[in-house]
């Protein structure tokens, strides 16, 4: 168990080091997320932002930019032809999956650090009303989204037309996570905030994450066989 986690951390550190040197993913993902926010402003700001739009805008921006980052994480392995080497490494398959997942999560967390405050500013969302609860919803929602996304991105790495297929698979599958994330956040941002409801959605997210990560670990081992 510790060995698997150590191996996962080694793989994550490798990805993060490559990212730290090029900063390709973090800059492009971040810029894309901000570009999404701009489009949302055209769609949802009349005199001022329409009511209760902030939660949805935040989560859609995160889901879209997350998809962009996902497509690229395995693309590097493919371009460098290192995927086979990675899968040949004498560690459990699960470690490869977890390593990729951890690297992606840290990347998405970095993007969220910037995007969330911008949403607060541009769409007047009360971010500081329940900061711990909001952080929990974002963290758990991101974990579930990234867990499904990492699996599908890994599966599709050798498929033709993978760029189109990834979002097609991803959005229906992550529907429960997005619903829980948006509804929980909307409960915090509402004019009459309902923190108990937000806590319930947080608990749901925890449950979804447990299911998703367990199934994804098994499926990853079964699918990545060559």
């Amino acid at each position: 168990m510790t060995r698997t986690l150590q191996a996962a951390w080694t793989i994550a550190r490798k990805d993060l080091r490559i990212e730290a040197r090029s900063r390709e993913l973090v800059y492009t993902t971040l810029f894309f997320a901000v570009a999404c926010l701009l489009v949302f402003a055209f769609a949802f700001v009349r005199e001022r932002p329409i009511d209760n739009a902030a939660a949805g805008i935040l989560w859609v921006a995160l889901a879209f930019s997350g998809t962009l980052a996902l497509g690229r994480t395995f693309e590097r392995e493919r371009q460098g032809e290192t995927l086979r080497a990675l899968l040949l490494a004498p560690v459990e398959r699960g470690a490869v999956y977890l390593g990729k997942l951890i690297a992606l999560l840290l990347l998405m967390a970095a993007v969220e650090m910037v995007v969330v405050p911008i949403v607060g500013l541009l769409f007047s969302a009360p971010l500081l009303r329940a900061p711990a609860l909001l952080a929990g919803l974002l963290a758990l929602g991101t974990v579930g989204f990234a867990a499904i996304g990492t699996l599908f991105a890994a599966m599709l790495v050798r498929a033709s037309s993978r760029d189109v297929l990834l979002p097609i698979l991803l959005y229906p599958m992550t529907a429960p996570l997005l619903i829980a994330g948006v509804q929980g956040t909307a409960a915090i941002f509402a004019d009459e905030p309902n923190l108990v409801l937000a806590q319930n959605w947080l608990a749901m997210l925890l449950f979804f994450d447990a299911v998703v990560v367990t199934v994804a670990l098994w499926v990853f081992g079964a699918v990545m066989t060559e």
Binding site: I148, A159, V219, A222, V223
Partner: peptide, 17 residues
Amino acid sequence: YAGVGSETLSAAVGVFA
């Protein structure tokens, strides 16, 4: 549209669905 190995990929999607 996934090309070679699409059986395995779609099986994963079937399980997940």
